[in-house]
Nucleic acid binder design. Sequence first.
DNA 1: GCCAACGTTGGC
DNA 2: GCCAACGTTGGC
Length: 153
Amino acid sequence: MRFWLMKSEPTDVSIDDLAALPEQTVAWYGVRNYQARNFMRDQMQIGDGVLFYHSNCAAPGIAGIAKVASTPYPDATQFDRNSKYFDPKATLETPRWFNVDVQLVQKIELVSLPELRAHAELERMRTLQRGNRLSITPLDPSEWRFITERLIR
DNA sequence: GCCAACGTTGGC
DNA sequence: GCCAACGTTGGC
């Protein structure tokens, strides 16, 4: 079992949006970065722990606990001409982008970015590193435990 | 809206 | 394969 931090812009899919979806589950569509894709395609397994992070918004931070809820499959938006995620180089035979489904476990009181930065235990977290932009990053089990056991009210 | 950091593109 | 130009991310 692995642990992941996954960023979502709340104007796109917020934690409340996720909570309102059938099965409280969403396809993690729209990833167009190879490293992040590879995490989903090659490393994620059903049941992996996910921290659902709100990014590019007024109050960035961890907004919920979730889990990986499917094996990887082709991201439908790459084939959709009307989607901003359409990829003309992708074909049904050779899809380029993959996603998993993510299911909400629990909405939490926001653990803000400044709070995350305040703990020495988390200083090596990828998301907190200078210049990091990757939307999906692995978490050390120790980081997962610290956040889920110590920072969540 | 600014801008630092980083990934991708494409000419050569 | 190099690398300048460009686009995107995301905190502030």
